[in-house]
């Protein structure tokens, strides 16, 4: 059971910890392009995209080589230790090249870890939902700590890497792929919409770490919701209504109940996706989540046009229509 949880946590940590924290932090602090450190941190996003393109082949190689993986983990340990050495809650303010290197190394390791763990999960073929629930609940903890120390989320990534290494979640995976037909579009979109809703308190509270508790609450709700397979459709529907309600009442995004509903939609969406076959790190769902997250920031928040959120629901309708059409005999 613990192994299942760690496996799934290792898969999800990139999507639920590193990527949201990076995007949120960049959107809050901006980036200084006149400095090497600023360029490095801003350049991390395209680098991760490039890495995603080569990550599966790289992941298989690393996963099959214990020595390579050990090297990566030692590098991550050094990076995190260095990053936290001066003042672990605020290295964005210090703008030093070593800290920028730390971010690059942690991000690279996080994505690699996610890919390696996915290879293993695919090969193991174990029951997903209970492991998923545990992983979602555990991923809430770094966000809870982010309330006092916003960079604790990155620390959480490092802890997951260490735990995955110790449990063997990332080594010895096979290269078999459980390719399945992509007929789960609505659930994929539910994950994306839930991610947008989860991001709102982060944006709202700006430089305050108070968003950490909101995200943690949502992830905890997601963990519970992923255990209730029969209510998935209802949870996604309620989450969708909550998503649209925020168009009319933007402050709803700050209500704890909103986070519970959004988290439940996330859990239901992830549970429905059966991640072992569908979720690729920074490909497929994760890419969708990241892109939708950015759209949410730019369109609905930065342009102060909350009603634009409704447009994000349209692709879900298209996916539903397509799925129904495909399902016809």
């Amino acid at each position: 059971m613990l192994r299942d949880v760690l496996d799934r946590l290792a898969v999800l940590q990139f999507a639920l910890l590193f990527l949201p924290a990076l995007i949120a932090t960049l959107s809050i602090y901006g980036s200084e392009f006149d400095l090497t450190s600023g360029r490095m941190i801003a350049g991390l996003v395209p680098w991760l995209c490039v890495q995603a393109l080569i990550t599966r082949r790289l992941a298989r190689r690393v996963a099959s080589s214990a020595a390579a993986w050990a090297l990566v983990c030692v590098a991550a340990a050094l990076a995190v230790t260095w990053a936290y050495r001066p003042l672990h809650f605020d290295w964005w303010n210090e703008r030093s090249v070593p800290h920028a290197w730390s971010m690059v190394v942690i991000g690279t390791t996080s994505l690699l870890l996610s890919s390696c763990a996915l290879e293993r999960v695919r090969a193991s073929g174990t029951t997903w939902n209970r492991g998923l629930a545990g992983a979602l609940l555990l991923s809430a903890l770094p966000w809870l700590a982010a309330q006092t120390h916003p960079n604790a989320v990155f620390f959480g990534v490092a802890l997951v890497a260490a735990a995955a290494l110790a449990s063997g979640s990332v080594v010895g995976g096979q290269s078999e792929v459980f390719a399945q037909a992509a007929t789960r579009g609505p659930w994929l979109w539910a994950v994306a919409l839930a991610s947008i809703d989860l991001s709102l308190p982060v944006w709202e509270r700006n430089l305050e770490g108070g968003f950490g508790a909101s995200v943690a609450l949502a992830l905890a709700a997601a963990g519970v919701a992923s255990l209730v397979p029969r209510a998935r459709a209802a949870l996604v529907l309620i989450g969708g209504v909550s998503f649209l309600f925020t168009c009319a009442v933007p402050t709803w995004a700050l209500h704890p109940l909103h986070q519970v509903v959004a988290g439940a939609m996330l859990g239901a969406g992830l549970g429905g996706l059966e991640l072992r076959a569908r979720l690729l790190p920074l490909g497929g769902a994760t890419l969708c989540i990241g892109a939708a997250w950015m759209i949410a920031h730019v369109v609905t928040q930065n342009l102060a046009f909350a009603a634009a959120r409704a447009l994000l629901v349209l692709p879900a309708a298209l996916v539903c229509w397509r799925v129904r059409r495909t399902a016809r005999p």
């Binding site: 983990c73 030692v74 995190v80 936290y84 290494l165």
Partner: peptide, 17 residues
């Protein structure tokens, strides 16, 4: 060896934190 490395990794992180 990997488990030893992982233990060292965890210890260094906790120390840093």
């Amino acid at each position: 060896l990997l488990r030893v490395l992982a233990a060292l990794f965890l210890i260094s992180l906790c120390t840093a934190w």
